[in-house]
C-alpha cells in the first residue's frame, strides 16, 4: 500500500484529536479562570533533528513517511477578562499568579478566585478546600475569616472590620513550568516550582473569565473540519484511483 495512504490516515486521526481539544475549550468558555489548550502538530519523523543518528532518518524515508501527528497540547496562558461581580469574596488576579489551594491530594493551584467562608469560618473554594495563606498569620496556612465585612487588598491581605485576619498566598511560576490541569479548575505543578508572586496583584469583587476566545476557536474548528475533509478525499483517492486500478485492471492483463 502507498505510504501516502497511511500519512493521510495519521493526519485524519490527528485532526480528530484536535477537534476534541477545541470541543473541550468551547465547553469551558464560561469556566472561571479556565486556561484553554492549543493543539500543536509535528511530523512523525525527526527530520528536524538530523544529528540523531538513525538509519530511518534518510532523505527518501523522511519524504515518504513524514506523517503529521498531534504532538501535544499546550496551555494558552494569556489572561482572561476580569469581570466585576461585586461579591466581596470573589477575587481576580491581575498578572500571571495563581492561588494555592490545600486539597486532599496536596497543594494545587487555581486562577478561580470564587471563594466562600466555610461553616467553621475558614476561607475555602466552592469545593470546600482551604485557600492557602501566609502561615505566619494562621496555623498551617489556613485563613480564618471572622464575621463582618471582608476587604482584600491588592497584596492579598484579608481584613475584617479593619483587623488583619490573614493573607492570601499568591504564587507565580517561571515561564515554561509544566502545569498539569487536573479538572475542577485546579493545576498541579512540580514540587518547589512555585515562588511568591512579585508581579501579580489581587482585585476584590471581580472574577477572571475563561481565556477561551470563542471566535478563534470556531475558526480553528472550521480549519480542522476542512482539513479532515481534504484528508478523507486523499484517502479515497488512494483507495479508488490507485488501489482499485491496481487490483482490478492489473489482474486483467
Amino acid at each position: 500500500m502507498d505510504s501516502g495512504f497511511y500519512a493521510a490516515c495519521a493526519g485524519l486521526q490527528a485532526q480528530s484529536q484536535a477537534l476534541e481539544v477545541v470541543a473541550h475549550n468551547l465547553a469551558n468558555v464560561s469556566t472561571v479562570g479556565f486556561r484553554g489548550d492549543q493543539a500543536t502538530f509535528q511530523s512523525l519523523l525527526a527530520v528536524s533533528r538530523p544529528a540523531v543518528p538513525n538509519v530511518l532518518n534518510n532523505v527518501l524515508n523522511s519524504a515518504a513517511n513524514n506523517f503529521g501527528v498531534l504532538e501535544g497540547s499546550h496551555m494558552d496562558m494569556t489572561a482572561g477578562n476580569l469581570e466585576a461581580t461585586g461579591n466581596p469574596l470573589d477575587v481576580g488576579i491581575e498578572g500571571g499568579g495563581f492561588f494555592a489551594i490545600q486539597t486532599a491530594r496536596g497543594i494545587r493551584y487555581t486562577r478561580n478566585g470564587s471563594f466562600q467562608v466555610s461553616s467553621s469560618g475558614i476561607l475555602v473554594t466552592t469545593a470546600g478546600d482551604p485557600v492557602f495563606g501566609d502561615p505566619a498569620l494562621g496555623a498551617k496556612g489556613v485563613i480564618n475569616v471572622p464575621a463582618g465585612p471582608v476587604s482584600i487588598a491588592a497584596d492579598g491581605t484579608l481584613s475584617v472590620n479593619g483587623a488583619v485576619a490573614g493573607s492570601i498566598r499568591l504564587v507565580e511560576f517561571a515561564p515554561g513550568t509544566k502545569l498539569t490541569p487536573e479538572g475542577e479548575n485546579l493545576f498541579a505543578a512540580p514540587e518547589g516550582s512555585a515562588t511568591l508572586a512579585q508581579q501579580s496583584m489581587l482585585r476584590q469583587g471581580a472574577l477572571e473569565s475563561s481565556n477561551v476566545n470563542a471566535m478563534s476557536s470556531v475558526v480553528t474548528l472550521l480549519g480542522v473540519q476542512r482539513q479532515a475533509e481534504m484528508l478523507q478525499r486523499a484517502l479515497s483517492l488512494f483507495d479508488t484511483e490507485f488501489n482499485q486500478i491496481a487490483s482490478t485492471n492489473l489482474a486483467k492483463v
Binding site: E20, H24, G72, S73
Partner: peptide, 22 residues
Amino acid sequence: TVATGLQIGLGARSAASEIIQL
C-alpha cells in the same frame, strides 16, 4: 523529556450555584 504533553480534556460541568450576597 516531553515539554508539553498531550492532554485532552473531557469538557465542563456546572459545579455550584452561589447565592449573591449583594
